[in-house]
Amino acid sequence: MATYNLDVTKEHCPMTFVKTKIELNKLQKGDVLNVRVTEGEPLENIPKSAVEQGFTVLSVEPTEVQGIYSIRIEK
């Protein structure tokens, strides 16, 4: 069970989720993807979209940087 990291803080909707989806598709069962996102649209929508596509959102937490959050998604 591995953990991977992805930063989509420079992307805009819907590329934030496109990039996330591509990385999610590479996961094996039990693997976790840590996605760094900006607050606002990606913070609201990426967890929802991940759940819709059958993944589990483990946590959504602020990072050390103001306005940037980390979403942990498990396959």
Partner: peptide, 17 residues
């Protein structure tokens, strides 16, 4: 290419595959 085909990749039935 990811950018160009993003609206296909977003579709649950299509995706990257």
């Amino acid at each position: 290419q990811v950018n160009r085909y993003s609206r296909h990749i977003l579709l649950q039935d299509v995706g990257v595959e």
